[in-house]
Simulated assay, not measured.
Amino acid sequence: MRPYKIPESVLVVIHTPALDVLLIQRADADNFWQSVTGSKDRAEEPLALTASREVAEETGIECGEGSALASRLVDWQLRNVYEIYPRWRARYAPGVTHNTEHLFGLCVPQRIEPRLSPHEHTAWQWLPYRQAADACFSPSNAEAILLLPQFAE
């Protein structure tokens, strides 16, 4: 049996200096566009490690410690608490209904072609940040993208 997901996750808005945002389409839900997201692997995993691991797993973009982009992964010091969609609650321990999501930004020098994990995502697109926010299925993801001008370099 697969272990339950930890209800603490990251959302990483990958963007360019021009505020173009990378969105990826979920493989398990038609037309669900989002930023990189993912849960901690273990309770004590540092959030920055969760963020860099998820970015690498979902896009192939390396931003972990020692990488060229490591200094560009920024913890926005914001979090969302939201109700987990019923379709995905079985992944969590019985009785868990909410997740705490920590927001990060990753500024890449220009639009990069991601290398998607096909079991997680099926397509990608770069959009100006307002269009990217409109394309997101998740209201909290859209809100995070709309905050981008406050956090961009």
Rank of each mutant, 00 (worst) to 15 (best):
F32L: 02
E143M: 07
L49K: 12
I61D: 03
P3M: 12
L106N: 00
A43K: 13
R91S: 03
L49D: 07
G64D: 04
W124H: 14
A132D: 06
E45P: 00
W76I: 12
S52E: 13
S140R: 09
T59P: 01
L69E: 10
V96N: 01
V74E: 07
Q110L: 10
Q34F: 00
A48I: 07
A43L: 11
T16Y: 02
T100L: 00
T16S: 03
A144I: 11
N99Y: 08
P94A: 11
Q25H: 14
E113C: 10
E83Y: 15
R42Q: 11
Y4D: 14
N80W: 09
P149S: 06
E45L: 04
A93P: 06
P118A: 11
T97E: 10
R130L: 12
T16Q: 00
V108W: 05
D75P: 14
I112W: 12
V12C: 05
A68P: 03
A135K: 04
A123V: 10
Y92R: 11
L127H: 02
H98N: 11
A70F: 03
K40M: 05
W76T: 14
L22C: 06
Y92A: 06
W126R: 01
L23M: 10
A70G: 00
A51G: 02
L23K: 06
P3N: 15
K5N: 13
Y92H: 08
S117L: 12
Y92P: 01
H15M: 08
S39Y: 02
I6W: 09
A152Q: 08
A133D: 02
Y82F: 14
L11F: 07
W76V: 13
D41V: 09
Y92L: 09
S39M: 02
Q34C: 05
W76K: 12
A142T: 08
V81E: 13
A29P: 02
G66T: 15
H121P: 00
W33V: 03
G60A: 05
H121Y: 03
T59A: 11
R115K: 06
Q150C: 10
S9N: 04
R2I: 15
D30C: 08
V108L: 01
T97N: 11
